[in-house]
């Protein structure tokens, strides 16, 4: 298998993260993408939290 590309998360990864959250919390309250957008943008822009994503089987979303 080719080594995955590990990169920092981007704004366009939001839907993949929302989907992931849903998988992790299948019984939880569904997250709305539009509501998650500002939180995701703030997270990525904070400079304190870094989210890494590998792309080994296609992009996240």
């Amino acid at each position: 298998m080719q080594d995955p590309l590990v990169r920092g998360a981007r704004q366009q990864d939001q839907q993949g993260v929302v989907d992931l959250y849903r998988h992790l919390h299948p019984e939880g309250v569904p997250l709305m993408s539009e509501a998650a957008a500002p939180a995701w943008a703030a997270l990525l822009g904070s400079g304190l939290t870094h989210v890494l994503c590998p792309e080994g089987a296609g992009p996240m979303a």
Partner: peptide, 16 residues
């Protein structure tokens, strides 16, 4: 037993 989006691994770290 968590399920993740296929092909993804999430690691978050935070430094202050």
């Amino acid at each position: 037993g968590w399920r993740a989006t296929p092909g993804t691994v999430n690691v978050r770290f935070r430094t202050v």
